[in-house]
């Protein structure tokens, strides 16, 4: 049986990602300097109106001190948004997970903690269901060509084997992976379609591609390579393209998209 023959009415999702710090949307020009980009609810609603299928909020300066403001932001977003959203950054314990779900998040994303404490994936999946847990995987193609998994916002190389890790997160109960190709991130040279194609149509959970989008054709390539969803930040925040610009391009190239009337 070829899995390619299996029918699905699911359409690929376009997911803007918002970086937040202390309850505000920010843009980092370098590690020290953060530029305030505005109110999370306002920006979230803007993307929802443009046709975003889902949103991801990443707390890039997550710390214990900042958690109250992060939770207030999640509550605020939940009260205003009518599409699903995930939150990530600063989630270290099951207690944190409870707090974010109670505040109204639909999903949490784990990156560093998934690597350092993988049992957290199992715990979240068994208590809230696989659909509520997205494991973010930062992968880098090293100079010698092999694939390495990084944590701590891409600053620390782990000892994990990429091919084992993408299987392990499935076994532990992740519902989706958010795959960021670090060697493509911010380069504007497109997503890593080779990585996406390698996962294949029988990889058992949804794959969100991230990192490297500069234009609508990059979204097209990622979806054709097998991505179930595509996440991007910069090109939306810099107003280079709206979500609807991207969707129109895809629809014109015979990829079904959720359209809002």
């Amino acid at each position: 049986m070829s899995v390619n023959n299996l029918k699905s009415d699911l359409v690929p999702r376009i997911i803007p990602c918002l970086d937040v710090a202390a309850g505000r949307v920010v843009k980092g020009t370098n590690f020290k300097q953060l530029i305030d980009m505005g109110d999370p609810v306002e920006l979230a609603l803007k993307y929802e109106q443009q046709g975003a299928d889902e949103l991801v909020f990443l707390d890039i300066k997550a710390s214990v001190d900042n958690q109250p403001s992060a939770l207030a932001m999640v509550r605020d977003v939940a009260m205003n948004l009518s599409i699903p959203f995930a939150v990530g950054g600063g989630i270290k314990t099951m207690e944190d997970v409870h707090r974010f779900f109670q505040a109204g998040a639909d999903k949490v994303t784990l990156n560093t903690m998934a690597v350092s404490q993988p049992d957290l994936i199992n715990q979240i999946a068994s208590q809230y269901g696989s659909q509520s847990i997205v494991v973010a995987i930062d992968v880098n193609r090293e100079a010698e060509g092999e694939l390495a998994i990084y944590t701590h916002g891409g600053s620390q190389k782990s000892a994990l084997n990429y091919h084992q890790w993408i299987r392990e997160v499935v076994d532990r109960g992740a519902g989706e992976i958010l795959l960021t190709a670090m060697h493509k991130d911010g380069t504007g040279s497109g997503f890593d379609c080779e990585l996406l194609a390698d996962l294949g149509a029988d990889y058992p959970i949804q794959v969100i591609a991230s990192g490297g989008a500069k234009g609508p054709e990059d979204f097209y390539d990622a979806i054709r390579a097998g991505a179930d969803a595509v996440l991007a930040a910069g090109i939306f925040h810099r107003d280079e393209y709206t979500v609807s610009d991207i969707k129109n391009h895809l629809v014109n190239n015979n990829i079904s998209m959720r359209t809002t009337t």
């Binding site: 899995v3 699905s8 699911l10 999702r13 949804q206 079904s256």
Partner: peptide, 11 residues
């Protein structure tokens, strides 16, 4: 379907 849970939008 090989990918479960089903997550996303369908017409």
């Amino acid at each position: 379907h090989p990918k479960t849970p089903m997550v996303g939008w369908a017409k």
